[in-house]
């Protein structure tokens, strides 16, 4: 489904990605974890095609998105759903308008079909009856739920979650994790989650990759990662301030 090959990216001479290699299979949920500022969001922006690498390639369903024009890239983006870190909801639209937006703009569905799908999505994310509210009236957790509903409304085959639970309390964070798991079972998408919510994130992910100093230092199932002998992974999971990770 996704293959990242030797990805390099620098900003003003500072190396952020330094040869990232990662394979993500179809219908699998992969979590990319790492300390703050290690380049996780930069990596996800490369997968969306918002950033172009200095070197390397990203293959989505066999197509190298670093070598195609914007029209072809948009065709790939149409099969993509993204939950941004802050939700990225449109302030001028209601909750209903935000969720309906991709359907109105990218499909030829009738008003009633759009209405049915949006109301269904609101129910799935536990926000029934909240359609008329504006993003400014919502709490952080509710915003993430709306953003999740918007990301899934077009039933994409690939969904990217950029820190879906950052800034939320543990109860709301757990509910978002449960939602990701439930929607994955319902829609069967391939998921990439950027997170540092250990160990909770291990409950919903099939594979975990540790990003450090611009490279993937370890990949494995949640069990393998939790038993990893890699000192960087060990320090990250235990949350110890002593170890090879410099901060």
């Amino acid at each position: 489904m996704i293959e990242i090959v030797d990805l390099h990216k620098s900003f003003n001479g500072q190396k952020v990605l330094n040869g990232v290699n990662l394979k993500i299979s179809e219908k699998e949920i992969v979590t990319i974890m790492g300390i703050s500022g290690c380049g996780k969001s930069v990596l996800i922006k490369h997968i969306i095609g918002l950033l172009m690498p200095d070197k390397g390639s990203i293959l989505i369903e066999g197509v190298d998105i670093t070598k195609i024009d914007i029209k072809e890239l948009d065709k790939i983006r149409e099969r993509l759903g993204v939950l941004f870190q802050g939700g990225a909801l449109f302030d001028s639209l209601t909750v209903y308008g935000n969720i309906a937006f991709p359907l109105r703009e990218k499909t030829k569905l009738s008003k009633s079909e759009i209405r049915d799908r949006v109301l269904d999505a609101l129910e799935v994310v536990g926000l029934k009856g909240m359609g008329k509210k504006y993003p400014g009236e919502l709490s952080g957790g509710m915003k993430k739920r709306v953003a999740l509903a918007r990301a899934l409304i077009t039933e994409p085959s690939l969904v990217l979650f950029d820190e879906p639970t950052t800034g939320l309390d543990p109860v709301i964070a757990s509910s978002i994790h449960a939602l990701i798991k439930a929607t994955h079972e319902k829609y069967g998408y391939t998921g990439v989650i950027i997170s540092h919510e250990v160990p909770k994130i291990f409950e919903i992910t099939d594979k975990v990759a540790m990003l450090h100093n611009g490279t993937i230092v370890d990949v494995g199932t949640p069990e393998e990662i939790q038993n990893s002998t890699n000192p960087i992974v060990k320090q990250f999971i235990t949350g110890s301030h002593e170890g090879p990770i410099e901060y």
């Binding site: 918002l50 941004f84 870190q85 802050g86 990225a88 937006f101 991709p102 990218k106």
Partner: peptide, 15 residues
């Protein structure tokens, strides 16, 4: 809209 990633969200929706 730029700093809250709303512009990125439009691009990600192929708009």
């Amino acid at each position: 809209m730029r700093i809250s990633e709303q512009i990125d969200a439009l691009s990600a929706m192929a708009l």
